[in-house]
Design a protein around this nucleic acid. Structure first.
Lengths: 355, 355
DNA sequence: TTGTAAGCGTTATCAT
DNA sequence: ATGATAACGCTTACAA
């Protein structure tokens, strides 16, 4: 900038203003400044600007794991909105570890991010690491894995009602002994899903046995192991409602290994609408969990607050939808109805990003 | 820092040094400074430090799409290495658009990133937007989708030999009329895969018909459409080698809709070892493409160069492996061999991240 | 071992 | 419409 100013015989102030289209600078001056800047390949130093303005035009994101379909779609949504609004995105993953989340929070804070989007680690139960942000009025938005212990903006889905609906669907499909493969109980999304499941059973007067419920980390192995345990029960379930698609799909595959027909003998419903849900045969009935929409909503919420266009705390609830596919609907035994023999069912339209 | 200095009756210099564990500061002083800093919740302002040191401890990443299994795993690898080395990660997606890639490059440059990791957009054919980095000695590393037109560090796989191997495997399995569903020809990874495919056919004296080759964006729809076109040929193929798993899996599903048996009538091989490859039945034979390893290698390369521990240009080639599953191996017709009836094959171990 | 002071590249304030 | 100057918060010669 000094260079530009000298060459043009004006002050750095003028250059700075011209580059920012400040109203008090003449057309001619602006044009000449911009022209020379272009020619010399001048690139504004955002560090210095950030330091002076105390605004970095950067938002921080902390997620449990980047490499999950749900999370990466969410990040993608965040990135789009943020970039349109002129923000860069600083990303970090906690690997579901509390310690890492704390470290990242502190590092992002001292990077002077203008705002923070968080989806909590599975482990996290203490939230003091977010205090610096709250104390210094740096906006925070929590997405999906949130906590009621912090008064911040949130973007969530109605896990209770989604789970309730999913379970009722199984009941309506004729299943009676329904198991639930759930996640860590202190993470409210899993707690809510379990509650919704229990509420549906109760409404219809069905058994709610502890033995029919597993609490795991919802990994591949956990899916196989939980299914094994459930099917080894003296009185095994005739349906499984899993808190994510990963475990649901593993259930289907494992049941098939056991020679058990899905959905004829055991029905399965998942959660998330991951790509795999339309690849597995039979296609998995699941709950759409619009990750990109959630990311977009969170980023918008954050940007609006940073730009001062919004005050106060709000929680946005994104709509989900039960997507009924073949893993939970018994085929008709009426020979009059036409079967789909030869035709494998597919439902490519509804699935989340899959490329 | 001023505050700390005053309270302790020392200079800011001392505080700054104490916080950085500078050797010329006494143990006692260091301790007291650190203690008070903790108590007052002091957080170093990395902007100011970056401005002064001309090092932001941030690396920029530009990828085509965040929400793809391959890319998100790669990012995850980058993030891990970068964070261990004390760098933050600024992420942006080009959406496979040239214009966006250019914008992001410029924005990252003026954010003063210490280095850049890029995987090129499908569209990109001009590379001038990376000149600012190269001209000012900001290290650049390209991963996977690279170009020979830029002299920078690279992390790639041997696409030619992987494709060659995959095609030879199909030939060894008894397929003779092998089609290829490939990607944009100006992106060298797809060009190399096609070359490998052709070379294998030629080596074994098989036909290499243009009609058996499709060039698409390798999306779900492209997978279905290409398969339709191939199978409508007067003389359709008896095997398909696809340049990614997305299209390969769609091929399998579509062939099954047509009532065609995979692998008995048509064999299919994919590329990437995405999660879906072990969900589809029959499990997909594919090429492992260790995304996280590539991300890790790229980040290490970059960090080493930033830290001045390495000079000159180098290309790292990550090993891939042909993972033979059921989609490409005809079942024995010899009744003496035991069939796997009732037992659905699974190969959970080898697949890329899937949670 | 510690302190003084300059300076990183901008932008904001106040003047002209 | 433009300019001089201070300041953002930190690091680092150089001095003591």
């Amino acid at each position: 900038m000094h260079d530009l100013a000298q060459r043009l015989g004006v002050s750095v102030t003028t250059v700075s203003r011209a580059l920012q289209d400040h109203h008090s600078i003449g057309r001619k001056t602006k044009d000449s400044v911009k022209k020379l800047a272009d020619e010399l390949g001048y690139q504004r130093n955002s560090m210095a600007a950030a330091l002076r303005k105390k605004k970095s035009n950067t938002i921080g994101v902390i997620v449990p794991q980047i490499a999950r379909p749900f999370i990466s779609s969410m990040i993608s949504g965040i990135e789009q909105v943020a970039n349109e609004a002129g923000f860069s995105v600083l990303i970090s993953q906690s690997s579901d570890l509390y310690q890492k989340e704390v470290k990242h929070a502190s590092s992002l804070y001292s990077s002077d991010v203008d705002g923070l989007i968080v989806s909590l680690a599975m482990e996290t139960q203490n939230y003091d690491h977010f205090s610096p942000f709250l104390d210094h009025d740096v906006p925070v938005v929590m997405v999906d894995r949130v906590t009621e212990k912090l008064e911040v903006d949130k973007v969530i889905i109605n896990n209770f009602s989604a789970a309730f609906q999913a379970t009722e669907h199984l009941i309506a499909s004729g299943y009676r002994r329904i198991a639930h493969m759930g996640g860590a109980a202190h993470r409210n999304i899993y707690r809510e899903r379990k509650k919704g499941y229990l509420a549906a059973l109760q409404k219809h007067g069905l058994v709610t046995e502890e033995a029919l419920i597993t609490d795991t980390i919802l990994s591949i192995d956990a899916g196989i192991e939980s299914t094994r345990r459930l099917m080894n029960l003296a009185n095994p379930p005739d349906a499984i409602f899993a808190a994510n698609d990963t475990t649901a799909v593993q259930s289907i595959l494992y049941l098939q290994e056991l020679g058990i027909d899905v959905p004829q003998e055991v029905g399965v419903v998942g959660f998330n609408n991951d790509p795999i849900s339309v690849i597995v045969q039979p296609n998995l009935t699941t709950v759409s969990h619009p990750a990109d929409e959630m990311g977009i909503a969170a980023a918008k919420q954050l940007v609006d607050k940073i730009d001062g266009e919004r005050r106060g705390i709000e929680t946005i609830t994104i709509e989900t939808e039960l997507i009924v596919r073949d893993s939970s609907t018994k085929r008709s035994t009426n020979p009059a109805e036409k079967s789909t023999k030869g035709l494998i069912s597919r439902d490519v339209q509804n699935v989340q990003n899959i490329i």
